[in-house]
Design a protein around this nucleic acid. Structure first.
Lengths: 229, 229
DNA sequence: TTGACATAGTGTACACACAACACTATTATT
DNA sequence: AATAATAGTGTTGTGTGTACACTATGTCAA
């Protein structure tokens, strides 16, 4: 079976930059290619867009198929269509970035035959195609957006300590933050709920757990509140 | 001649939201369609992506062909690929927005056969396809971006008065600004050059002209300066 | 030429937000 | 019981945003 058109058409793909956070770094999920071109190289998860799915559906399907990841924060990043970005033919790719709770997704990495692994964002191997550039753009977008939208919580478990949030911002923004000022600021926004629980399995005083109250955030937003770190 | 592929492919287009500013409003440039679907309706300038040009080149070509506009600020906005957004077949569109100096582009609108005209952004006719949504997104992006990037100057003539900049921000942000505070702020950034000229043809005291010093802005940016209104 | 009118251009005071900074409290471990 | 590790907490100075009203200058018309 083949499909014919009056004018030539570019192939259309989606590629996803999946970010996760652990105790050390910001991580990105990569897949090792098992086919040419760039066979054996690490690359962003992604694939061809089908005609019966929207772009975002396509991105979510590829994420599911290649990494087992589902139900994550996903946002369109940029569309790249340089003529020679794929050696085979003209390929235009719509890129997305995803934020996942790494604790929930540590295992599923190697769902299908392909090799998948988390890498520190600042220490990735050589990537296929122009994926290094895409990763760079995604990282920059995250750095910018995390300051005025409460998307950072997508990288944390549902219950987290104030230290974890601060660590998140320190890692993403790549600068140290003052503990007292940070806590004052994040608590004064009134978008966190203090839980009657503390963290466990730590060899020192346990910190209180909080969760992000999305309802409250949305209510405040309608009243003109602007999140900002 | 026809082109065959193993899998079906979406058609790929670009669409541009062209903003201009006059003494009253923020305007957008629209084209009246001369072919079905939506024949006779107003629409964003745009068209199919060719395989020998990048996406941005494609957007610039369509702008030139359909409106005569060249050498303008152009930035990618979003890519839309909902399955049924075009009644004929699957069409994915990469959208851009452009900022033009309306004074330079008043006449060229009707370059080719098609009818082209400027409309106040808040008073556009019914648009073809999902172009109303695209316009809405572009407007929102402009509102957001104009506050932390000096792109507003792209809407003004090379030489402008402080009142014109203030008017620009008042129109785009849709709120009144205090004259003294605005002038203090914009001048304190040290990115404007005061010229030895004043405006002409006004029936009252003439205001001093300024121009935006891009060099100075870039130098300051490298030193950690952040534009913000 | 003079007066009316239209906009240019200018400074201060108060409130609020941000930044810098160090010690005590609590829990686990030995 | 002592040690180690992190949790948790306030104040002060500095800078930034905001509110606010009058004088200066040029055009135009009588």
């Amino acid at each position: 079976m083949s499909y014919s058109y009056e004018y030539p058409r570019a192939a259309l793909t989606v590629d996803c930059v999946v970010f996760g956070l652990d105790d050390d770094d910001l991580k990105v999920l990569l897949i090792q290619r098992d086919l040419p071109p760039f066979e054996g190289r690490w690359a962003l998860p992604g694939g061809f867009v089908r005609l019966d799915e929207s772009l975002e559906e396509s991105a979510r399907r590829e994420l599911r198929e290649e990494t087992g990841i589902e139900n994550v924060y996903l946002e369109q990043l940029y569309t790249i269509g340089e003529i020679d970005r794929d050696p085979r033919e003209r390929v235009v790719t719509v890129t997305y970035y995803a934020l996942v709770k790494l604790t929930d997704h540590q295992v599923q990495a190697a769902t299908d035959a392909r090799n998948a692994a988390w890498f520190a964002v600042d220490d990735v191997p050589a990537l296929a195609f122009d994926h290094a550039k895409i990763l760079e753009m995604a990282h920059e977008r995250l750095r910018g957006k995390v300051r005025y939208q409460p998307i950072g919580f997508e990288l944390l478990p549902a219950k987290f300590t104030l230290r974890q949030i601060q660590h998140l911002y320190e890692v993403v923004l790549d600068r140290p933050l003052d503990k007292r000022n940070f806590r004052k600021k994040i608590l004064s926004m009134d978008i966190l709920v203090e839980l009657d629980e503390v963290e466990t399995d730590v060899a020192h005083r346990a910190a209180r757990l909080y969760k992000f109250d999305r309802r409250k955030y949305q209510r405040l937003t309608k009243q003109g509140f602007n999140f900002e770190i």
